[in-house]
Amino acid sequence: MITYLGYVFIFWGTIAFLISAVGLIRMPDIYTRMHVGTKSTTMGIILVILGAICIEPSWALKLILLAIFILLTNPLSSSVIARASHKDGATLELDELKKVEK
């Protein structure tokens, strides 16, 4: 029974990956692309790891360590990319904040 629960988790995780991949093509500029590429990828990886834990409970310790590592590194890399692109002078394609400033 718990194996099927694992398959359901993995299915939803891959759906999150698919949404992320579509978003990477669909979004116009680097900030929104980074947003899509980080958030849904983190969720997808966590769901896939949960599914793997349900299927093989003996790997639980290593997989939880892996999940913690990904939760540590993924936001870090996205923040570094955002900082670098801001320094490089990347702008938003659809800038709603310009209206507010005027």
Partner: peptide
């Protein structure tokens, strides 16, 4: 040329032993 931000400095101290 540029200083690294606070997040990277803190995280590198945590991540390097791992």
């Amino acid at each position: 040329k540029s200083e690294s931000n606070f997040m990277l400095q803190t995280a590198s101290k945590i991540l390097f032993p791992v």
